[in-house]
């Protein structure tokens, strides 16, 4: 039983890692006031670039790095449209998703079904992995999971404890005030959107290079959308995103274990189990959509609104 729980937690952490990475990036983009609905597209592009690079160079690190870079470049299209051209962020983000999904499908056609010659091995952390329950659940993973732990802490620290973090939050709350205080609004927003793209690409590459590992068209299968919902679930806080990501990841991976389970003599329908992450996402969106809740949980006030310098504010 004990071992069982540990294995379930371990699976939840691994399944949650791509979602966690993508939502960490989206938290930064949204904290700077730019809503990027293109996460799914950027993840998908990251997945195909990461897989193709790893397949041809046999170097997963290079694959993951290139995936982040390419996804960041794609996100700059969104930054250019929304920050420089003040376009509608929802429309631009949706376009980005379609673009990313389409490009990855075309690029990846020749890689469908190719097995990856190199594998990212599991590296248990000596000492820590011997702790009962926690050791197996948290410290018996591949290096990329540890990287995600580090990113959570670093991104949380930067956002709340550094001058840069204050600037990012200020831009997202009130860009004109931040501008008046000498912050380069456009630069901060460009930077945050690019970081969001890089992390979404990293999440996608984790899926295709480490977790599965294989490339299949449409393989992110909605994880990008879950990552966006998770940002609200986490109330724009990198630490809270961890809990949500593992919860959503766990729901997705554990549905296969629950298929065997009987509850009071009844078997839960598989279709219901499969839709649990989406039901949870809708529940969170409904809860977080009211204006009062949004204010209280600290949604960036300027989220989704383009900033026009010198515009009169009433």
């Amino acid at each position: 039983m004990f071992e069982d729980v540990a294995i379930s937690l371990k699976i939840a952490v691994e399944a949650g890692t791509p979602i966690l990475l993508a939502s960490l990036g989206e938290i930064y983009a949204e904290r700077s006031g730019v809503l990027n609905l293109g996460v799914e597209g950027m993840m998908m592009l990251g997945a195909v670039v990461g897989f193709a690079t790893t397949l041809t160079t046999k170097n997963p690190i290079l694959g993951v790095l290139l995936a982040s870079l390419v996804a960041a470049l794609l996100s700059l299209v969104h930054a250019f449209a929304c920050v420089s051209l003040k376009a509608n962020q929802v429309v631009s983000g949706l376009a980005l998703t379609m673009l990313g999904v389409g490009i990855s499908g075309v690029l990846g056609r020749q890689f469908v079904g190719s097995p990856l010659p190199v594998r990212v091995a599991e590296a248990s952390i000596p000492g820590l992995s011997d702790i009962p329950l926690i050791g197996k659940a948290l410290f018996s993973h591949d290096p990329f999971v540890y990287l995600s732990y580090a990113l959570v802490v670093i991104l949380w620290f930067v956002l709340y404890k550094t001058k840069l973090g204050i600037e990012i939050r200020a831009v997202g709350e009130d860009p004109s005030a931040a501008d008046a205080a000498g912050v380069n609004v456009a630069l901060v927003q460009y930077g945050c959107v690019a970081l969001g793209g890089a992390l979404a690409g990293l999440g996608g590459a984790y899926l295709s290079v480490v977790y599965t590992p294989a490339w299949i068209e449409n393989m992110t299968a909605g994880r990008g959308w879950i990552a966006i919902a998770l940002v609200i679930f986490a109330m724009w806080d990198p630490l809270r995103a961890v809990i949500g990501a593992y919860l959503f990841g766990g729901l997705e991976a554990l549905q296969f274990r629950l298929q065997q389970a009987l509850f009071f003599g009844y078997r839960i329908p598989v279709t219901l189990l499969g839709s649990l992450p989406y039901i949870a996402t809708i529940a969170v969106l409904v809860f977080a959509s009211s204006e009062a809740v949004r204010k209280r949980i600290g949604a960036p006030s300027a989220l989704g609104k383009p900033y026009f310098r010198e515009e009169r504010v009433f």
């Binding site: 069982d4 294995i7 379930s8 699976i11 399944a15 079904g113 899926l207 977790y211 599965t212 590992p213 294989a214 299949i216 393989m219 299968a221 997705e252 991976a253 554990l254 296969f256 274990r257 298929q259 065997q260 598989v270 499969g274």
Partner: peptide, 22 residues
Amino acid sequence: VWIHAWYDPTKAREAAEALIAD
């Protein structure tokens, strides 16, 4: 365990791991 796909390595892996865990 049903994965509801003819080709989906991600789900196949998760399903296989779930069966092994059981």
